[in-house]
Design a protein around this nucleic acid. Structure first.
Lengths: 151, 151
DNA sequence: TTGAAATCCGAGTTATATGCTAGGAATTCA
DNA sequence: TGAATTCCTAGCATATAACTCGGATTTCAA
């Protein structure tokens, strides 16, 4: 498995906030209930996301969270990297890592770089808005199917 | 980190065998020494690779391992999946997994599928032979640089 | 023929990461 | 004022990762 629950739950959480975007805040309790996840666990995850500036919070009763930018301006990559750290398949391809000290030419490193690039390419090109669009498309398709059944 | 040492060391190990391909067997001791890895640990890894049919072994003194196919016929994907299992970012996109039971349309699943496809696309398109070619290319480039220095 | 070099096998061990839970402080609205 | 909420730190149970160990088996070569 590539991702831990941090990234997986975190994205679901952010998607939930995207659905709500534009109409006020949403409490963690509500998010946890809608996605059937542990509220206290999500608490930890959203703390990171908030510190990264992706959501803003309002404390106190009737408080909650909301996206701090439009869904189209938040990528899946930002969310996942915030929660999981950089998605490198091996340490040696991380930015701050010193060059491989191996005497010979490190060929496997080229592989890790290609894998990393392709993952980043995918997650950086998808925004929360794309997910909302997918949702609407899927919904429409299913309703179409239903109508077919009855005809 | 996406890959554990199983996949990372395993690929290095197989690359070492690819370098040796065509000129007899290579002992684990030799592989471990060349790649600076624990021999006893590699023992476990190569057992899987052997059971998967990627290498064949010769027991006893002067024994060792060799690739059971040409380097061009063994992909990085086969090696990594043998050692790591399927590289799915989430359980729900695995073949044998039942459909998401979530009542609503699962939009995050689409993301995991795209990530998985892109990773598989990379690792299944690279063979050990490609790695050998990369090695020779890098070697040639470095020698070119050296000559430049002296000119 | 014997011993060294190797593969094979299963179990055990240690450290780290994962996936949470608990308790309580601080804030804010009704 | 109290209920609902975010915020913060710590702890904990389990699983996984990354090895190690002991020994059995096989085979070549001196």
């Amino acid at each position: 498995m590539i991702l831990s629950t941090k990234g997986r739950y975190g994205l679901k959480m952010m998607y939930e906030l995207a659905l709500k975007y534009g109409s006020g805040t949403m409490s963690l309790k509500e998010i946890a209930h809608k996605q059937q996840l542990s509220e206290t666990y999500l608490e930890q995850l959203i703390a990171h996301v908030r510190k990264a500036g992706l959501v803003t919070s309002i404390r106190g009763a009737q408080g909650g969270y909301e996206l701090s930018r439009k869904p189209g301006e938040i990528t899946v990559g930002e969310i996942i990297r915030t929660l999981e750290g950089p998605l490198a398949p091996s340490e040696c391809v991380l930015e701050d890592e010193p060059e491989c000290t191996r005497a010979e030419y490190c060929v496997t490193r080229l592989i890790w770089e290609k894998i990393m690039d392709s993952i980043n390419n995918v997650i950086d090109s998808i925004t929360l808005q794309d997910m909302l669009n997918d949702y609407h498309k899927m919904k429409k398709n299913r309703e179409g199917e239903k109508n077919d059944e009855h005809s």
